[in-house]
């Protein structure tokens, strides 16, 4: 399976996503420059963490206008799997591919530490290898990870089983402890925690691998 890792100026987890997918998972990966609309034949797209365009205005506010996002939007509309981690999640929300917004953490401070997550649905190409309510340890590293949306939107997310992960001990004030959500088509995942940092045994946890493994097995089914 071939992953396309988008590189915005200011992306800084792009190499980590590339390393996790190639070295830890044995898949192919290519970097996709923000100024291009060419997805280079990728089977799945990763919007990595970082500070796209510096994020001085609002996280992801400028990235959504970049040429690559036109291509990513089309790819997602056609059902292609798209994952946004951390800044990538922020960009997906800004770009309208996912509902809601990520605000400053409740404590107003940047937080970097491994946190415990609970799998909230296994009905998605990103979570099919998990068991429901399975607990995972995956790191977070963000200053603006407080997920918020209108009550009706939150209700709808829950009604449609589109909450992918919840924090066990909410670190940033996110509404309903939401750590990650799915699009209506279930092919776009946005999450604040960094699964690419939990894919290598040397990094203390490999719980993030199952997200990629889920996708790889879902892909294997569809491409048969």
């Amino acid at each position: 399976m071939k992953f396309g890792v988008v590189v915005f100026p200011g992306s800084n987890c792009d190499h980590d996503a590339w390393y996790a997918t190639t070295r830890n998972l044995g898949q192919q990966a290519e970097f996709l420059w923000h100024h291009s609309e060419d997805l280079k034949g990728a089977d799945a797209i990763i919007l990595p963490g970082g500070f796209s365009y510096g994020d001085y205005l609002r996280c992801g506010a400028i990235a959504r206008f970049s040429p690559i996002m036109n291509a990513v939007r089309r790819f997602a509309q056609e059902g292609g799997p798209v994952m946004g981690f951390c800044n990538g999640f922020q960009i997906l929300c800004e770009a309208g591919l996912l509902p809601g917004a990520l605000l400053r953490n409740a404590g107003m401070k940047f937080i970097c530490r491994p946190v415990e997550l609970e799998v909230a649905t296994t009905n998605s190409p990103f979570t099919n290898e998990f068991s429901l309510r399975q607990h995972l340890t995956i790191p977070i590293a963000h200053g603006e990870g407080c997920y918020q949306a209108e009550e009706s939107v939150l209700d709808q997310l829950e009604a449609e089983d589109r909450v992918a992960f919840r924090y066990v001990d909410n670190p940033n004030g996110s509404a309903r402890s939401i750590a990650g959500i799915l699009s209506a088509g279930r092919n776009v995942l946005g999450m604040m925690p960094h699964p690419e940092r939990a894919a290598d045994p040397l990094m203390g946890s490999t719980d993030g691998r199952l997200i990629f493994d889920s996708l790889i097995s879902a892909y294997a089914l569809t491409s048969k």
Partner: peptide, 14 residues
Amino acid sequence: IWDQYDWMVRTNTT
């Protein structure tokens, strides 16, 4: 202090 630093980015910190 160090909770405020991203000490893991680049996935090398063992």
